[in-house]
């Protein structure tokens, strides 16, 4: 028996969310008294693979194959399911990222495994039950879900568990399962990635702005603040609907749900649909001209004031703080 964790690489490197998933999987392996194996797909160097040992992976299966250079969920799911069988995995862990969402359900069906997506805590093993807490109703609630299948698949929400070191020596082993040709029906034509931007779904810090900013030409200060903090930028729905900002920045019930350590909301009223996607942020700061704005009710810190005055001052204060 073992725990298997899928470690998603981007251009041969692992992101923080991967180390978080490994840390989480290691904690499950500890609870179950089993060992942790990581499965990496694509071209990742030995040194980077060895890094996974720092977070508790004692074995790393390395699938390095030109056909699998690009992410194709169908083929990747086959590889992960084969790895799970080879390792007799009782639990398979993935990050609940964009690619994780396309992968985990396919892996679960292949393994006839129950799946919990959006997990926010370690599983509880209560009297034979296997219970996992996950977000539900777009962050308005949690659902404690029991999995009763022999194998369990868990997709962990970014920033839910944190990175925890637990150093072991990782043994890297080449793995080359057979994959059927029909798994490559979908063809990746193009990948466009803005490398200079912090990606929103797994960002630790997020600066978000709403209709209070009046127009897209006023986002310069939002981006400056985000850059200074090393934060991702986000927006409310009307802002992306009006094409002031791209849809990929829209957070809330019908946008992406995020749970960063810090969420700064500027000129956003705090409608229930907006709060649904951001209320699990650890610390919320609200800047709004209207002291009655509903967002203040769920904020930790607030400034009542005009964003066009407050934000430039905040930028100055931050520059001074950074020295």
């Amino acid at each position: 028996m073992s725990v298997l964790v899928y470690v998603e690489q981007v251009d041969g490197k692992f992101k923080k969310s991967v180390f978080e998933a490994v840390s989480y999987a290691k904690a499950i392996a500890d609870i179950q008294g089993s060992s942790l194996t990581a499965i990496s797909i694509g071209n990742v160097g030995e040194a980077e693979l060895k890094e996974l040992g720092k977070y508790g992976a004692s074995k790393v299966l390395n699938v390095s194959n030109d056909q699998l250079k690009n992410f194709i969920n169908q083929a990747y799911a086959s590889v992960i399911a084969e790895a799970a069988k080879k390792e007799s995995a009782a639990v398979v862990v993935l990050s609940n990222s964009f690619s994780g969402k396309g992968l985990a359900p396919r892996v679960a069906v292949k393994l006839e495994a129950g799946l919990v997506d959006g997990a926010v805590e370690l599983p509880k093993l209560d009297g034979g039950q296997f219970l996992v807490k996950k977000t539900a109703f777009s962050g308005k609630a949690f659902a404690i879900t029991e999995l009763t299948s022999a194998i369990k698949v868990i997709a962990l929400n970014p920033n839910a568990f944190g990175v925890k070191e637990s150093a072991v020596e990782a043994a890297v082993e080449a793995f080359s399962p057979e994959i059927k040709a029909t798994d490559f029906t979908a063809i990746v034509k193009e990948i466009v990635r803005a490398t200079n931007k912090v990606s929103l779904p797994d960002a630790e810090l997020v600066v978000s702005a709403g209709r209070g900013l009046k127009g897209p030409e006023n986002w310069g200060m939002i981006e400056e603040l985000a850059n200074l903090l090393g934060a991702a930028t986000a927006c409310s729905k009307p802002v992306s609907d009006a094409d002031w900002r791209p849809h990929s920045e829209h957070v809330g019930q019908t946008g992406i749900a995020i749970s960063p350590n810090l969420y700064i909301a500027i000129g956003i009223s705090g409608a229930i649909q907006h709060l649904a996607g951001v209320s699990s942020s650890k610390v919320i700061v609200v800047i709004n001209i209207d002291p009655e704005a509903p967002f203040f009710k769920v904020a930790d810190y607030g400034i009542v004031g005009d964003a066009f005055v407050v934000v430039p001052k905040l930028i100055e204060a931050l520059k001074a703080h950074k020295g």
Binding site: K15, S99, V188, I191, V192, S199
Partner: peptide, 8 residues
Amino acid sequence: IEGGKEVV
């Protein structure tokens, strides 16, 4: 995709 898009 994280930080961008992919055409399939």
